[in-house]
Design a protein around this nucleic acid. Structure first.
Ligand SMILES: [Mn+2]
Ligand SMILES: [Mn+2]
Ligand SMILES: [Mn+2]
Ligand SMILES: [Mn+2]
Lengths: 219, 219
DNA sequence: CAAATTTGTTAGAATGATCTAACTTATTAC
DNA sequence: GTAATAAGTTAGATCATTCTAACAAATTTG
């Protein structure tokens, strides 16, 4: 049984390797806001329990056992976020901190009931996929809005960043998952995009924003 | 901010002093399944943070600050149990272990929403009172069934023990909170009671059971 | 009340998770 | 390809939580 702390390391390894490939000790230390010696010694201890593979000076990788454990923690996190939004009236910008705690609860029935009550959702409130109860995660391949071209119509489907600040920015512009956007033009100087959607006929999105928005191209 | 462990000590002190008055180091150690030296040193450390009052060889008492903190943890525990039963389809015998974990979540909105969704309940699924959001707990004075007399009609309102085994025993006899019982007779030898309720015309309850059932006398 | 028992305390050690300082290995830049 | 920089490791310490063994105080009992 992994401790609370070990679970956070497993999840960090899982998320980092899914977004940036190989995971170094320094990536891991940064991601968990601990010092490198702390991450180093925890990785060695995770290896003893067969959660990770590790050789001095090499990247850290999860074992199959570690993969599955991590995926199931991510599953609990994302199911919780969806439950908070759909069943308890939270905004998508309010759920991450709570889910960060609830993901460590050991109570299969609790999460199975969430899953049922939500109708077995496949994505969380930020568009990230929810691993199934065997720890398998579907890979979606969405396009960053920043790489789309003027004239295209797209639908907002996920985010690459779900920080409270970014979500509050999106709230302020009435941008939500499912919103259809028409790309009107791109400013060559800073790559900002002018888009229209719903009652917003002219909204400018900086590259910083558009590269964090993942879309499905409709036409 | 109390740690997870400290919160468990505060809650144990609160529950013990509400059920048995003065709390000794050995009561506390038993209740938390730790050794006496462990309880002793934790009590000294809780005193440093102003959660408890303590003098060598004397009983331990909560400070007002400790009282309130403990009551709010009990509130989270009992609200969670009620939420699991009323909103997520758990049986009253399945909720304690989960609540033992969720009571340590720091997320006021999460519990406030539970409270609202439940319509501000005043008791948990086992009939125990839920402290209000200021940490004040209503005292109910119920009668143990074991002290009632043949001929009386009573309503089951709470339990003095909520162990899974006891709850499963009550399930097997279809006894639930609210059940009205008629006391038919008492066996002088072992103080067992013969009662009738609903479709059960003759059910014998041992003293061990009847002293754990709290009732309101109807007539 | 003195002896026996129970309860409580102190001391010393272990484990898990973390840090800083000092050192080593690997990578990058001229 | 050496020198500078970045990344990684080791050593040694701290803090929280727990234990066992040994001792001390308080309570109960004959
Ligand atoms: Mn999240
Ligand atoms: Mn977490
Ligand atoms: Mn309970
Ligand atoms: Mn607890």
């Amino acid at each position: 049984m992994a401790s609370f702390t070990e679970e956070n390391y497993l999840k960090a390894l899982y998320n980092l390797s899914n977004s940036h490939g190989e995971v170094s000790i320094s990536d891991l230390a940064h991601s968990l806001a601990v010092s490198m010696p702390t991450a180093n010694s925890m990785v060695k201890s995770l290896q003893k329990s067969d959660w990770v593979l590790y050789e001095k000076y090499k990247p850290v990788t999860l074992t199959p056992k570690g993969q599955k454990e991590a995926a199931l923690i991510v599953r609990k996190h994302r199911l919780t976020e969806m439950f908070l939004v759909k069943k308890m009236g939270f905004g998508w910008e309010e759920v991450h901190e709570v889910a960060e705690q609830i993901e460590h609860i050991h109570a299969p029935k609790f999460f199975d009931r969430m899953d049922e009550m939500l109708g077995h959702p496949t994505i969380d409130p930020h568009g990230s996929p929810i691993p199934d109860n065997q720890g398998r995660m579907q890979e979606f391949s969405y396009t960053p809005l920043s790489t789309c071209k003027p004239g295209q119509t797209v639908q907002l489907t996920a985010l690459t960043n779900s920080s409270t600040e970014f979500l509050e920015f999106l709230n302020s512009r009435k941008l939500a998952l499912g919103t259809q956007l028409k790309i009107l033009s791109r400013e060559a100087y800073d790559q900002s995009l002018v888009v229209s959607y719903e009652s917003h006929s002219q909204e400018t999105l900086s590259e910083k924003v558009s590269e964090r928005l993942l879309v499905r191209v409709l036409e």
